[in-house]
Simulated scan of single mutants.
Amino acid sequence: MSVAPAAAEPLEGDIVVLRALDKVTARTKDLFVPIDETAIFGSIAIRPRKCLKRPPEETPETSAFLEISEIHQGADNLTLFTGWMFASSPAINALEHPVYDVWVIDCRISEPVKPAGKE
């Protein structure tokens, strides 16, 4: 009987690194967005809710749960996308928009804060 090795728990990040593309102007921008904060790119608002990264000893994969909406002045924002995006397979669950594309690039994990005076 063979037993598969247990997979390590994914590491949870606190900053999502995204690349956004404006298809009309061909402008790209890398966005560093803290969890539960909102980044604006053109007329879309991007809010990451969770970011997971596999440990270094496993096959690389970064995934982020994103909420993306289109900003409308004087009206409610229109939800364009809610779900998980994967860095290794951006086409699996992609934002469907005629002007903008968004990809997950990385998940940044901050170093734990050490108490003052402790080395």
Rank of each mutant, 00 (worst) to 15 (best):
M1Y: 10
M1I: 06
S2Q: 09
S2V: 13
A4E: 12
A6V: 09
A7W: 09
E9S: 11
E9A: 15
P10G: 05
E12C: 01
I15Y: 05
I15W: 02
V17Q: 10
L18E: 03
L18Q: 03
A20E: 01
A20P: 11
A20Q: 03
A20W: 07
V24L: 14
A26H: 12
R27A: 15
D30F: 11
F32Y: 14
F32S: 10
P34C: 09
P34A: 08
T38F: 07
A39N: 07
G42L: 02
G42K: 04
G42N: 08
I44T: 04
I44R: 00
R47Y: 07
K50E: 14
K53A: 14
P55S: 15
P56D: 15
P56M: 15
P56Q: 11
E58F: 08
E58G: 12
T59M: 11
T62L: 01
S63W: 07
F65S: 10
L66K: 11
I68L: 05
I68S: 00
E70S: 09
I71K: 10
H72K: 04
Q73A: 07
G74L: 00
L78C: 04
T79P: 10
F81P: 05
F86I: 11
A87C: 02
S88C: 06
P90A: 02
A91T: 05
N93C: 10
E96G: 01
P98N: 09
P98Y: 03
Y100T: 07
Y100C: 03
D101N: 06
V102L: 01
I105N: 01
I105R: 01
R108N: 15
R108K: 15
I109W: 06
I109D: 04
P112W: 09
E119H: 12
E119M: 03
